[in-house]
Write a protein that binds this DNA or RNA. Sequence first.
DNA 1: TCACTGGCATTGTCAGACAATCTGATCGGG
DNA 2: CCCGATCAGATTGTCTGACAATGCCAGTGA
Lengths: 225, 225
Amino acid sequence: MAEPATPAAARSPAGTPQRDAVVTRIRRAIVLGELRPGDKLREVHLAARFGVSRPTLREALNLVVQDGLLVQEPYRGFSVTRLDAGAVRDLARTRVPLDLIAVGAILEDPTGRRLQLVRDAWRAFDRLAFDPDPLVQHEAHVAFHRGLWAASENTALLRLWPVTEALSTIALAQEQAARADPHRAHAMHAQIVEAVTAGDAAAIEAVLRHHIIDSAEEFLLLDET
Amino acid sequence: MAEPATPAAARSPAGTPQRDAVVTRIRRAIVLGELRPGDKLREVHLAARFGVSRPTLREALNLVVQDGLLVQEPYRGFSVTRLDAGAVRDLARTRVPLDLIAVGAILEDPTGRRLQLVRDAWRAFDRLAFDPDPLVQHEAHVAFHRGLWAASENTALLRLWPVTEALSTIALAQEQAARADPHRAHAMHAQIVEAVTAGDAAAIEAVLRHHIIDSAEEFLLLDET
DNA sequence: TCACTGGCATTGTCAGACAATCTGATCGGG
DNA sequence: CCCGATCAGATTGTCTGACAATGCCAGTGA
């Protein structure tokens, strides 16, 4: 009553719901490795840290659960998803055909607009690929792949993207130390754009497979021996 | 080790949080056509109808949003997802390759366990395909396709399933009237199981394509003319 | 040593309230 | 008569604070 020196409502940035801001901060914490796969999340602690109430925090957590970054067990709480070696292999094997669906749609477009979208995605990535902030690097990398799917203008693919992105993010977060070399990622993406522009289906499949399977292999080497 | 003598479970299955029960009821309402694509959902009304508080209801709604059955616009509320003709076509085109990934993994398994899982899914479907309750029919149909993906033992595919299922459900709900003929679905699924058992890749792709694209066409004929 | 029974920490849920925002209808001006 | 601005009601987003349900762990007794 007479002591609300800092009312929580004072700093609500009247625009986007706070919940979405919390979602972003949770994602960031995972990408940055502050929250590691397997970590348990305690609601009161996080709510205090983010300056929101528990109901709002829970809404945010549930959102993150649904695209796979977190898992929830009833009455046991939320924890960061942990992928085993098989899951990473499955992801790699599944992503290639999905990327090929996207590329197929891009090449089917006679107007060339979709190809232009790919080039736009490339330019955006190119600008940020060597940013000093590793979070920016990660987001640029992810945005490029999302852009590839978006360029297909396939709405079903776009719906599947968040799940795919979350799984990939976890896989990367798991091997926090051996983060992918930005130069290699840049070169790989350049090859992808080049192959798509050329329209050579076989080359596209080869380079995509190389990029994705290779990333997975790198992870598997660390994880298992 | 006494049996779960939970009397409080009068309105929700033992152990599972009420929120999950609400999620199920919302899904059912959509499948049954009580909630039609495009309908707005008012929180107070639904909370009263389901006998839960608004925070709990919102948690449930957010869960359903994430796999695509609902959409949420800030300060405008939740509404049932509506797919246009292009989205349905995209979905059909995207599902075929995904199903082929599953089938590929099933055929790769030398032990035959995955094939057995397919047959299990078929048996479960066969038992319920002609149930008088249309909801049971729908769930049996969906469960068969999920079973096909599950039989691949590909965890990435399993994660993608909820999104795919939600989109398919919406597409079906949209043409509430012209519900698929259960006999045809039964025959189609029989063909799929047969082709997978035989291991004939070309035949599998043909029958899958036929089943999925055909369902989509049926929808498109109603929607567009 | 091991099964069992508490207590404690954490999650699941509720109720009511208030602020922020959207919606639709009314009203004044061109 | 038509059109845009304004205002009240309705709806969503969020908070506080509390209580119930469940899981976890330590202490107890056989």
